[in-house]
Amino acid sequence: MQILITHGSLARTRVLSFNRLQLAAALVGLVIVLMALSGTIYHAVFLKAAREGWPVVSQVVRLVVRDEFAQRDRFMRENLDAMAQKVGEMQAKLVRLEAMGERVSGLAGVKPEELRQMTAPPAKGGGQGGPFVPAKTPSMQQLNDLVTSLDSSADLNTDLFTLVESRLFERRLSSLMVPNSRPLNGPVGSGFGFRSDPFTSRAALHTGLDFPADTGTSIMAAAGGVVRSTDYHPAYGNLLEVDHGNGLVTRYAHTSRILVKAGDLVKRGQVVAEVGTTGRSTGPHLHFEVLVEGVPQDPAKFLAGKGNVPFDQADAGGTKGH
């Protein structure tokens, strides 16, 4: 590119030549100058116009500032919405913790009034004092850190409560597996121990409790467990055996009809059979036995207990019998 410069005082015309690189540099310089000029005009003129209330310029500046405030307000709302969502999630976790705490306290035997005493505010009255130190308003980052810390603590406490509740349920299930419920409502006709055999009149060990009842009377499971067998035995007649785990087995003998089959799960109080007089029996009754590791024990000790095995299984002994 060439530029010709002519003047009356000059003897000849001057010629200025520019290449593409020089033109590009000149254009960039012009853009920089215009940007700097526009910035100067904005700060020197528009801001002054906004402060002094110039008719046209102040309205333009007000629109620009309003747009900036709108963007800033939208950003704050988005952050507050995210914070509100986190707080809502924490509140839901705290509600679940409160419900779980009530269940766990009930299983552990903690009374509601004891919980109220633990959470009650300190009693008013008495001497109080100390310097007043006003709390500083936390920043957004501090709030985020606090929410994150509380969320982690809530998760940890939830896991802890779940573990404690699981252990307490295990203890409760263990007690439910102990045969301490009467299999039949009625008096005991013959207890555990030596007696005169009704057929031979000789002294013999009676290995259970006899419950006299009419044929067809319902027989209930003394505890939850798994049906071990439902076979016919020459001495016991129609015999039902229920395995309660930990070496505990209950027997229901001389039944007229068995209502469950081997492998069935039964719960405490479920009707599992009906009274009869099958096998070695002189009349309709239920012969009820409790065995620990195959050794007959006195069922009366279990029926009189409160859910715990009333003796050390390691010391269980005695004469085996039917």
Rank of each mutant, 00 (worst) to 15 (best):
G29S: 10
H285W: 08
S174E: 15
Q22C: 05
D231N: 12
V65M: 02
L265G: 07
Q297S: 09
V178M: 09
H322P: 15
A11L: 10
L47C: 14
A99C: 06
V31E: 10
L80V: 07
G276N: 09
T217L: 05
L184W: 02
L240M: 06
S229A: 12
A36Q: 12
P112G: 01
G294T: 06
L248F: 09
N180F: 14
R51N: 10
K124S: 15
Q128A: 10
R74A: 11
D197N: 15
H287W: 06
A108C: 02
V110G: 00
D67Q: 10
L80A: 07
M220V: 01
D243L: 01
K320C: 08
V31D: 01
L47Q: 13
E293I: 14
G193C: 06
E165P: 00
K48M: 13
G321M: 01
T158I: 13
R14P: 11
K124V: 14
P234Y: 06
L163K: 11
L80W: 05
G189S: 14
V309F: 08
G106Q: 12
G109I: 02
K93D: 14
H244T: 10
V31N: 03
A203G: 11
V33F: 10
M220E: 04
L265T: 15
G208C: 00
L173C: 01
F288H: 02
Q141P: 03
G191Y: 09
V275P: 04
T217A: 05
P55M: 08
R116P: 06
V65K: 00
V290C: 05
V226I: 04
A222L: 14
T6P: 14
V87D: 12
A135P: 03
S181L: 02
K320Y: 10
F161N: 09
G191R: 07
A84G: 11
V227P: 01
S58H: 05
T148Y: 02
N144G: 11
Q91E: 15
R251K: 07
H322E: 13
A108Y: 04
V309L: 04
S139N: 06
G106K: 07
R20F: 02
Q270N: 08
S218I: 10
T162F: 03
G283V: 03
G126T: 06
T40W: 09
V292P: 06
L173R: 08
P284I: 09
G189W: 04
G109R: 02
N185D: 08
L168V: 07
A203Y: 11
P179V: 01
S166Q: 14
V188Q: 03
A49Y: 02
T282Y: 12
D159H: 14
V133N: 11
E89L: 15
G8P: 12
V64Q: 08
A223S: 05
R66W: 06
K124P: 13
N308L: 14
T319Y: 05
K48D: 15
R172Y: 13
Q59V: 12
P138C: 04
S9P: 02
Q270M: 09
